[in-house]
């Protein structure tokens, strides 16, 4: 394995509950993501695809296995380092947007910068700049709840990008959008992948979206389906 692997998960497992209620969400899964590629994690609901994303995005810890991010052992990182890593290196796009209501579009977009402790003036400058890139500058003072679905998801992408992350994790990014606006959002994501070299990890059950990715990994009942997946990591 080369040093260009940004995520390297080996034999990770995760289960929830205990005893009779025990549910193995992920069973002995090995999964790699190289710098700059776009990967789709495909599967039905309950297949473990979200769990896999949460683990590799350092939102949760696997019960067993090994996990390296940018060559560092993620399982031995302290809580503080994990938080810092997510803040600096990862961007998140969620199906349900998760914009803070009654708060301006600009404040929503600069939230990661606020969390990382960047000055107010710098936040505003960078926030307006990124909104301009998404042609949302005129909406910056509007409340997030007043936007349309497509606009909301573009605000979410702007928020994910503001910290200039290495990886964007997108969980069903087009799940709540009609096909036209969904297409625009897809184009935006893949353009970022191609032009800016940002690694893209998309969790979806949408075959068409998955087909646009460099590589697809299929999950079923917490295990990778080898016959369907392109396991080989692009160098």
């Amino acid at each position: 394995m080369g040093s260009n692997l940004i995520i390297d998960a080996k034999n990770i497992s995760k289960s929830y509950g205990s005893g009779a209620n025990r549910f193995d969400a992920l069973k002995d899964v090995s999964f790699q993501v190289a710098q700059g590629e776009s990967v789709a994690i495909v599967g039905k609901s309950g297949s473990g695809k979200s769990t896999l994303m949460h683990l590799i995005a350092l939102l949760d810890k696997p019960d067993s296995g090994a996990l390296e991010v940018e060559g560092r052992d993620a399982l031995r990182m302290k809580q503080r380092e994990l938080s810092n890593f997510r803040n600096k290196k990862f961007g998140f796009v969620f199906q349900q947007f998760f914009l803070t209501p009654n708060t301006s579009v600009l404040d929503n977009v600069v939230l990661p910068l606020k969390i990382s402790g960047i000055r107010r003036s710098e936040r505003k400058r960078r926030g307006l700049q990124i909104l301009a890139n998404f042609e949302l500058e005129s909406k910056s003072a509007k409340k997030a709840t007043t936007l349309s679905g497509g606009q909301k998801q573009r605000v979410v992408i702007a928020r994910a990008l503001i910290n200039e992350p290495a990886v964007i994790f997108a969980d069903e990014p087009t799940g709540n959008l009609d096909s036209a606006t969904g297409g625009v959002v897809e184009d935006t994501l893949f353009a970022l992948n191609k032009k800016n070299g940002i690694t893209l990890v998309i969790v979806t059950h949408d075959e068409e979206l998955a087909a646009r990715c460099d590589r697809r990994v299929y999950l079923k009942d917490g295990e990778i389906v080898p016959s369907l997946s392109n396991k080989k990591v692009k160098a």
Partner: peptide, 16 residues
């Protein structure tokens, strides 16, 4: 709840 989750996902520490 969601807002807290989001902030934590984006790297806000529990102490904050």
């Amino acid at each position: 709840t969601r807002e807290i989750g989001l902030m934590k996902a984006m790297g806000m520490r529990s102490s904050r």
